[in-house]
Every structure is written in structure tokens, then in C-alpha cells.
Design a protein around this nucleic acid. Structure first.
Length: 457
RNA sequence: GGCGCGGUGGCAGAGUGGUGAUGCAGCGGACUGCAAAUCCGUGUACGUGGGUUCGAUUCCCGCCCGUGCCUCCA
């Protein structure tokens, strides 16, 4: 089955065909590094990681570019408020972002360009836009002239009239048209700035992506991704800048957008105090459980992120790892056709997950070592195609939340041995007392034909 | 006001013009010294009112409810 993706540009699910049969270029809008990543930031990372994995299976080479925005007014404000120098803030936040996304089993992008390393490219692009009559300088700013582009608004399907009618922000006096947006803005003393033909300043919000995408993927590339909220104005303006600078050439051929995350049914916001950061959640749940939660709804659907959902994802992974646990070892296998078909149908991860459940049941029902090993292999291959089941089952069951009573493994084994002796002596009262003692510390014992195993519950 | 998205069983969540995924929870059973894990069985779900159709949860229209975006940044 060929890969199909929903293209925001056409509002239809389309068969994906890359420009070159042997290579795919994908650009995804990355983080502005002023604060720790929250669960809403993590969703696109996981969604496009799934897409990246699917593409790598289907095509010999993929260039996945995800930028780091390290110049932005939010960064300037945060630095001013906290006193932390801008460079330290962006470095520290970037490092944390990497750690957190690694914990979600998200592969790093092939290229992770930083805005501050591409200022010259942006200045060049802005110059081109001025030369072609699509931009103008005014009071130290450079603005993109939206009316100069006839086809503006195709991605978000808005007409200029509508936008002007709906505008709720005061129009800056230096704008020729209310819909014009900033490509370059002046920097005050103390603010980060770079010399340019229009004075010392810094880039506007949208230009960095146009410049970095062209630099790393060329004028036109295959897939551009990001959150639904970026469709307008960010992606619309990226398209405007890039197409006008490149004689109308398309920027990206497929536009893929993930839906929003709510928390316990409410919009996530700082004022509501329901702001889950990935970093905090990792103290309470394994990264894989967070990843599975983010994949449990289709990527274009809204996702309500709840503690109960996390608990369920943890339980689901317990079930899968339980199926993989012990002998025999999984046989080498390829992911099933059903699973790949689900993923290739616009990344239907919930359907893919249901196939994993079926594969896990098949493992539990398999009779005989050969059948069991084969079934385990099928489950493992399917899981790993989704970026799941990447650790050893025993390691999974030994994971403990931060601050949990840390009974050493030797101590646990000692108690298990003592209980075994009590059971042999038919002293079940003592055996049950030990079971309870361990249970109170979150250790669950399982007596099986091959002896007693334990896990943290 | 404009543009858009969604409402599926107790919960999560796919999908489909006609034999009602999947998981969790519940109930019954098997297994177990007791458990856990596992397996088996068990549920007349598609917001609402119309329309099209032999037949709609699935297509069309109205309504209700929820929700996102509407430009320098919440």
C-alpha cells in the first residue's frame, strides 16, 4: 500500500509521491528555546518522528530538518526577566529539549539548523524580496507586502478582505497595508541584533524557516510539518516569502499538521496551571508511556492528555513487555503488513496500536517455543516500527518513578528467596507476609513455572 | 462576524452504506496454596431533528454542544 497523507493545502488525503523517487525532504517547525518543552510541544515531535520512521522504511534516503529558533522576542523577554544571559538560556533550553525528546524515543532530525546561524541567508532572502517588489523598508523595519502576492492565503483559505475585517490588532503606522508582516525589525541597544542594509536589527518570526528550509532542502521540498496553530499566519507567510523570492515555485508539496493537545479536557495554559512539561512527567512515567499516549489518538484529532490516559498507556506497555518477557527470545521479523498499512494510511497510529494488542495476544496464546519466538518477533518488530518496545523487558519492569522507595534488587531477591523457603515449608502465612511487604513498596511478585519474577507496579 | 475541527458503549479510541475494531474498567469461568500474569465467555455505542436509500452511525440539510485560528505572539 502506498503512503497516503492528508495535505492541508488541498484538504484531502493524497497519495504521497516524493519529487525524487529515492529521496524525501521534510521540514518541521521546531521549538523556540526559551522554556522547557510541554506536552503540546511534544506531540508534533512524536507525530513527525512516526512519519520520519515510516519514510525511512519506504525510501532509501530522507533528510529531516527541524529548526531551533534561538532569536525571538519571547527569548529576549525571558532573559530580561530571569537575568540569565540569552546564550545561556538558549543553550540550556536546547539541551533539555534534546534530553526530553530523546526520552520519548524520537530520533534526532538529520539537520537541526539554528536561526542565529542563518542570519546572512535571511538578509539575502529579504534583499531578494525587496528587489522583486514584494517587500519594502520603513522606519528600520522591512515588511512583506501581502497585496503584492496575488495567491496569498491558499493554505489557510483566507481572503485578504476577511483578514482585514477580522483584524483585532492595531495596525502599525509604518505598514502600507494592514496585512503586511515583518521580515526584519530594528533592535534596541542591549537586544540581540545583526547589521543589515536596513540597520542593526533581527529577523521577524517567519523568515527564518523560509531561509533555513531553502538552505537545507532546496527551493521546493516534499513535506512541511508543524502544529495546526502554525497554518496561519506562520506557514502562510513562509509560503508567501519563499514563493515570491523564488518566482512562484512551491515551497512544500505536502503540508502536514497535527492537532492540539488539551489537558484534562481543558486548554493548556499557564493561568490554569495545567501546564505539563515533559521533564516533570518523566519523573512519574517512562518516556515510552508518554510517547504511546501521544500516539493513542490520530494525529489530526484533538488529543486530551490526562493522567488516566498515561496510566492506561503504562498498563498497555506492561502488557506488551510482559508478552515479550522471558524465554524464548523473539525471532527476527519484519513488521506485519497490517501494521504498515495502518501507518501508511495517513499515520493511523490508533489502528496500528490495536494491531500490537492482537500481536501480544498471539504471543500469549502461542504454543511451543518456535511459535512463541515467532510471535514475539512479530510483536517486537511492529512495536519498533512505531518507536516503541525499544528496551529490554526486564529493564522496563525495573523502572521506578522518581522518589519511589528504592529497594535494592539484592534486597528484593533476598526476600523472594526467603518467601520461596517459606512456601517450601508450607508456611504460607510467612510467604504472604513477604509478598505484602514487597507489594507495599510497589514490587509485584509473579510465580511462574520458571520461578518467581518481580516488577514494579 | 469570518475560516476550520469535533461529538462513537462506563472510559480511551479506530472504522464502515448492510455480518457492530482494539484496549482499560465491570461481570462470569479456567489456572493459582493465596495472588499476579494469562486464556475463555460476556456489552442491541455511534449528539439531535429531518432528507436520500431496500437499508445510515457512515452521504446531504438544519439545530444543539464543545473546541481551534483570525498577524508580531497568549
Amino acid at each position: 500500500m502506498p503512503l497516503e497523507l492528508y495535505n492541508t493545502l488541498t484538504r484531502r488525503k493524497e497519495r504521497f509521491e516524493p519529487m525524487r523517487p529515492d529521496h524525501v525532504g521534510m521540514y518541521v517547525c521546531g521549538p523556540t528555546v526559551y522554556d522547557t518543552a510541554h506536552i503540546g510541544n511534544a506531540r508534533p515531535v512524536v507525530v513527525f518522528d512516526v512519519l520520519n520512521r515510516v519514510l525511512r522504511r519506504l525510501y532509501p534516503s530522507v533528510t529531516y530538518v527541524r529548526n531551533i529558533t534561538d532569536v525571538d522576542d519571547k527569548i529576549i523577554d525571558r532573559s530580561r526577566d530571569s537575568g540569565e544571559p540569552i546564550e545561556a538560556l538558549t543553550e540550556r533550553t536546547t539541551r533539555l529539549y534534546h534530553e526530553d525528546m530523546d526520552a520519548l524515543n524520537a530520533l534526532r532530525p538529520d539537520v537541526e539548523p539554528r536561526a542565529t546561524h542563518h542570519i546572512a541567508h535571511m538578509i539575502g532572502l529579504i534583499g531578494t524580496l525587496i528587489d522583486k517588489g514584494h517587500a519594502y523598508a520603513a522606519e528600520g523595519h522591512v515588511l512583506f507586502s501581502v497585496p503584492s502576492m496575488g495567491a496569498y492565503g491558499q493554505l489557510s483559505r483566507r481572503s485578504l478582505d476577511e483578514m482585514i475585517a477580522g483584524a483585532r490588532v492595531e495596525v502599525a503606522p509604518y505598514k502600507r497595508d494592514a496585512s503586511d508582516f515583518v521580515l526584519w525589525k530594528p533592535s534596541a541597544e542591549g537586544q540581540p541584533g545583526w547589521d543589515s542594509p536596513w540597520g542593526r536589527g533581527r529577523p521577524g518570526w517567519h523568515i527564518e524557516c523560509s531561509a533555513m528550509a531553502k538552505e537545507h532542502l532546496g527551493v521546493t521540498f516534499d513535506i512541511h510539518g508543524g502544529g495546526l496553530d502554525l497554518i496561519f499566519p506562520h506557514h502562510e507567510n513562509e509560503i508567501a516569502q519563499s514563493r515570491c523570492a523564488h518566482d512562484g515555485a512551491d515551497l512544500a508539496r505536502y503540508w502536514v499538521h497535527n492537532g492540539f493537545v488539551t489537558v484534562e479536557g481543558e486548554k493548556m495554559s499557564k493561568s490554569l496551571g495545567n501546564f505539563f512539561t515533559v521533564h516533570d512527567l518523566l519523573d512519574e512515567y517512562p518516556g515510552e508511556a508518554i510517547r504511546l499516549t501521544l500516539m493513542s489518538a490520530h494525529y489530526r484529532q484533538p488529543l486530551d492528555f490526562t493522567r488516566d490516559g498515561l496510566k492506561q498507556s503504562k498498563a498497555t506497555l506492561d502488557r506488551w513487555y510482559q508478552a515479550l518477557r522471558g524465554d524464548p527470545a523473539p525471532a527476527a521479523a519484519e513488521p506485519s503488513a497490517e501494521l504498515l498499512a495502518a501507518l501508511e494510511d495517513d499515520l493511523n497510529t490508533p489502528l496500528a496500536i490495536s494491531h500490537l494488542h492482537e500481536l501480544a495476544t498471539a504471543v500469549n496464546k502461542a504454543d511451543g517455543d518456535a511459535a512463541k519466538a515467532a510471535a514475539k518477533g512479530a510483536l517486537l518488530a511492529a512495536g519498533q516500527a512505531l518507536g516503541l518496545l525499544l528496551q529490554e523487558p526486564e529493564a522496563w519492569f525495573r523502572w521506578a518513578p522518581k522518589g519511589a522507595a528504592e529497594l535494592s534488587e539484592d534486597a528484593i531477591q533476598g526476600l523472594i528467596d526467603a518467601r520461596l523457603a517459606a512456601r517450601k515449608a508450607k508456611n504460607f502465612a510467612e510467604a504472604d507476609r513477604i509478598r505484602k511487604e514487597l507489594a507495599d513498596q510497589g514490587i509485584i511478585l509473579e510465580d511462574g513455572p520458571q520461578g518467581t519474577t518481580w516488577k514494579r507496579g
